[in-house]
C-alpha cells in the first residue's frame, strides 16, 4: 500500500465519478481520460509496461477521441439543453451498483488465500517475450482478434454510413435528411 498507489487510486476514482456525474458530455469524457491515464500509470507501477502504454494509446488516444467525435456529430451535449442528466430510474441503478460493490468488497476482504508478498521480485517481461507468446502460444487467439477487429471496422462504417442499404430509396432518404 504505497503512497503512489493511494494517489493514483484517488485520481482514478475522482476521474471516474466526475465522468459519470458531470452535466456536460465533453467535460465527462475529459474526466474519463483522467481516469484512463491514472489506470495506465497503475499498470506501469505493476510492472506491466506494455499494457500500460497500450492503455494510453488505445483508451486515451482512440476511445476518448472517438467519444468526443460522437458528441460533436450528435450534438448531445446536455449543457446546452434543459434536459435531465440522469434517467427516471436512477435510484434503482444506484442501489444495484451499491449492491454489486458490497458483494465484491465482501468477497475481496473475506479472502483468506496466501498471495505473493508485497516485496516479491518484479516479473521481468520484455516486449520480445510478449511478441513470442503472441506468435506461438497465442497465435490462434491473435488471428481471431484480427478477424474480429476487421469485422468491427466494417460493421462500424456500415452502421454509421447513411444511404447505403436502400439504393432504390436513396432519393427519398436524401429528401428526408434535408428537412
Amino acid at each position: 500500500m504505497t503512497i503512489l498507489f493511494l494517489i493514483l487510486a484517488v485520481l482514478a476514482i475522482v476521474g471516474a465519478s466526475a465522468a459519470m456525474a458531470f452535466r456536460s458530455a465533453v467535460h465527462a469524457i475529459l474526466a474519463l481520460a483522467l481516469a484512463f491515464v491514472s489506470l495506465a500509470i497503475l499498470y506501469l507501477s505493476l510492472d506491466a509496461q506494455f499494457v500500460g502504454f497500450t492503455q494510453i494509446i488505445v483508451y486515451v488516444g482512440a476511445v476518448a477521441i472517438l467519444a468526443v467525435f460522437a458528441i460533436m456529430m450528435t450534438r448531445s451535449d446536455s449543457a446546452h439543453h434543459h434536459t435531465e442528466v440522469f434517467s427516471k430510474s436512477w435510484l434503482t441503478g444506484l442501489v444495484l451498483a451499491g449492491g454489486v460493490f458490497t458483494v465484491l468488497a465482501w468477497a475481496v476482504l473475506g479472502d483468506k488465500t496466501q498471495h505473493a508478498a508485497a516485496d516479491a521480485p518484479a516479473p521481468v517481461t520484455t516486449v520480445t517475450q510478449i511478441g513470442e507468446a503472441l506468435m506461438q502460444r497465442y497465435a490462434f487467439p491473435l488471428e481471431i482478434m484480427g478477424l474480429l477487429l476487421t469485422a468491427a471496422l466494417i460493421g462500424a462504417v456500415v452502421l454509421a454510413m447513411p444511404l447505403l442499404s436502400n439504393k432504390s430509396g436513396a432519393k427519398s432518404v436524401t429528401k428526408g435528411d434535408a428537412r
Binding site: A9, A12, I13, A16, S17, A19, M20, A25, A28, I29, A35, L39, A67, A70, I71, T74, S76, S78, T83, E84, V85, F86, S87, S89, W90, T92, G93, L94, L96, A97, G98, V100, F101, L104, A105, V108
Partner: peptide, 21 residues
C-alpha cells in the same frame, strides 16, 4: 479499487441518459 471503479461504471451505465456516456 477495481470493484469500486466497476461499481461507478455500472452506476453510470444504468443512470445516465446520454447514450455516449
Amino acid at each position: 479499487l477495481a470493484a469500486f471503479l466497476f461499481s461507478i461504471g455500472l452506476a453510470g451505465a444504468l443512470t445516465r441518459r446520454n447514450a455516449i456516456l
